[in-house]
Amino acid sequence: MKVLVPVKRVVDSNVRIRVRADGSGVELTNVKMAMNPFDEVAVEEALRMKEAGKVSEIVIVSIGPAAATDTIRTGLAMGADRGILIKTDQNVEPLAVAKLLQKVIDEEKPQLVLMGKQAIDDDYNQTGQMLAALTSLPQGTFASKIELNGDSVDVAREIDGGIQTVQLKLPAIVTVDLHLNEPRYASLPNIMKAKKKPLDEKTPEAYGVDISPRVKILKTSEPAARTAGIKVANAAELVAKLKEAGVI
């Protein structure tokens, strides 16, 4: 069984985000970048499936600049087999990403696509659903548990108020949540081995996909700073303040 895992290069989750002075977006100059945390979870899950003998090959695919090669190499160092970089310096919106991934699926014919439910930079949470629509494949979203069973996969989905388990016939697309697993760290020997693993480089034009933006970001701004709290003398004053605020 072949598993395809799309990954995205984003600002490291431990970095404090700074908005550009002109409000045109987030400052990326000299900022540490890393693999999207949700995608790391997807890579880890694919690796566990391979270690269990249920998966034979794991392919990592990323869409982005030349520097996204490092993100793919991270997945290869974790244990994936090969990578594909669709190289572009443009910002690629979810629909264009889904169309490119559709082309990759047509080419690679994976039995399972594992991907993060969203990226931490834009929080769209759209690509997996769009990809399922374009490919007409069954989808399981917000997965907190995944079990392969022959020609199907059981997906436990986190929903409001509980867990919903669905069974999808393979091939299928599953978007994962952070609660699914704890990603491993790549060892130094595996990091060195990853440099020799195959990594193909392609372009959106080679797939015949138009990645022209359809959405214009008008302004990016930081959230308002929290105001200082106040102390109340007694319970009666607390109740009065809550009433003033419309809480009760």
Rank of each mutant, 00 (worst) to 15 (best):
M49R: 07
E57T: 13
I60G: 02
A21G: 08
N30G: 09
V55W: 00
P37K: 04
P37G: 13
K54E: 10
L28Y: 10
S56R: 12
R48W: 07
L28K: 15
V26G: 07
V19S: 03
E27R: 10
I60S: 01
V55M: 04
L47W: 01
G25Q: 12
E40N: 10
V55E: 08
A42W: 00
R20Y: 02
T29N: 11
E44L: 07
N36R: 08
K32D: 00
E40I: 08
V43I: 15
K32Y: 09
S24V: 03
E44Q: 13
K32I: 13
E40K: 11
M35I: 15
A52E: 14
E27Q: 13
R20K: 15
D22P: 00
V41C: 03
A42Y: 02
E45N: 11
A21H: 03
S56Y: 10
G53V: 13
E51K: 14
L28F: 12
G53A: 13
P37V: 10
D22H: 05
E51P: 12
A34L: 14
K32P: 02
F38M: 07
T29E: 08
I58F: 06
E40F: 09
L47R: 02
E45T: 11
I60N: 07
E45A: 15
N36V: 09
V31Q: 06
N36E: 15
S56I: 09
E45C: 07
K54P: 01
D39F: 00
G23T: 07
E57I: 05
G25L: 13
E44F: 02
S56L: 12
S56F: 06
M49P: 00
D39I: 07
V31A: 06
V43W: 02
V41K: 05
E44N: 09
S24W: 02
E57Y: 13
A46M: 04
D39S: 03
S24K: 12
R18A: 14
V31R: 06
P37Y: 04
V41A: 11
K32E: 08
N30L: 03
E57L: 12
V43T: 06
K50H: 04
E27F: 04
E40D: 14
V19I: 15
M33W: 10
L47A: 04
A52R: 13
I58Q: 13
A34G: 08
N36P: 05
T29R: 13
K54V: 09
A42I: 02
D39W: 01
A21F: 01
G25P: 07
P37W: 03
A34D: 06
A42L: 05
V59Y: 08
A52D: 12
K50P: 09
V19H: 01
V26M: 14
R18W: 11
E27T: 02
A42S: 08
T29M: 05
E27M: 10
K50T: 05
M49A: 09
